[in-house]
Amino acid sequence: MDTILEVKDLVIHYETDDGRVYALNGLDLDLREGETLGLVGETGAGKTTLARGIMGLVPDPPGRIKGGEILYRGTDLLRCSNAEMRHVRGKKIAMIFQDPMTSLNPVTNVGVQIAEAISNHEHLSHRDALVKAREMLEQVGIPAGRAEEYPHQFSGGMKQRVVIAIALACNPDILIADEPTTALDVTIQAQVLDMLRELREKYSMSMLLITHDLGVVAQTCDRVAVIYGGEIVESADVFSLFERHLHPYTQGLLNSIPKLNEDVDRLQPIEGMMPDPTHLPEGCKFCTRCSYATERCRTSHPVMREVASGHSVRCFRYEQEERHEDR
């Protein structure tokens, strides 16, 4: 499978009054054509900064892109002008945000909001754009007759469908979904995820699904990347990751969720909390919470090592297992 989006060594910091926030610290990620890649991490790990970075929406100030490349079909988006980025956003790469309540305009009806996205990128008359908007509503399972209604007349799940309709209206290559179902109830979440999966296939898009829910990842994604302290600590296809989670942080995450098919008396949480992003540990970012940490972890920074086909991990414990293709 070809790579459609490649993020290389991306560094984004926020310069705030309280010091420099090290949001992304040399992040590498590749999204392949037609796949769904899950990006898993907790609050403050840098998930949303990455999504904003790809979209060219990092607020500056305080955000600063310090280095790296974001290659979309070979073009570095970081070198694009604002005008060029406007052709990419919405048309090539679209994004849906976590909270459908705040991403819609409350004083405009939903049909017009979808049509607005369409007219931004396609030479259509206002009337034709509205017709297409109604088609998009049908695509996401909302009767076209509701196009003249306003966001407050829709439930949370329905609003998220409208947001998806806006994102897909121009048939983008890549959809970035930032916690698209976190605000929704579980039965509605199931409906929305199923719909996203169908539409992803129908429009042959690639999807970057940002989430903290490992259940959603297991059921929706082809590959997974785990992010901690602004860098990827483990990446693999979904089957190998759930079968053999290598990084102590990934292990901790999976152990701390209660599982429906197992009974445990006590959960095993990860001790401590996320490191302060203005003062990240020097060596491995996870060393302050890791039960295996040694002196070396505190002083030197581990690199990503591929330990099995397509399965890479950033941890000194797997140094011996590194795969050498040429051996």
Binding site: T187, Q189, L193, G215, Q219, V238, F242, L260
Partner: peptide, 11 residues
């Protein structure tokens, strides 16, 4: 409807 955190289990 609960997503199972195991890709081998299809819901």
């Amino acid at each position: 409807a609960i997503p199972v955190p195991d890709p081998r289990v299809r819901m």
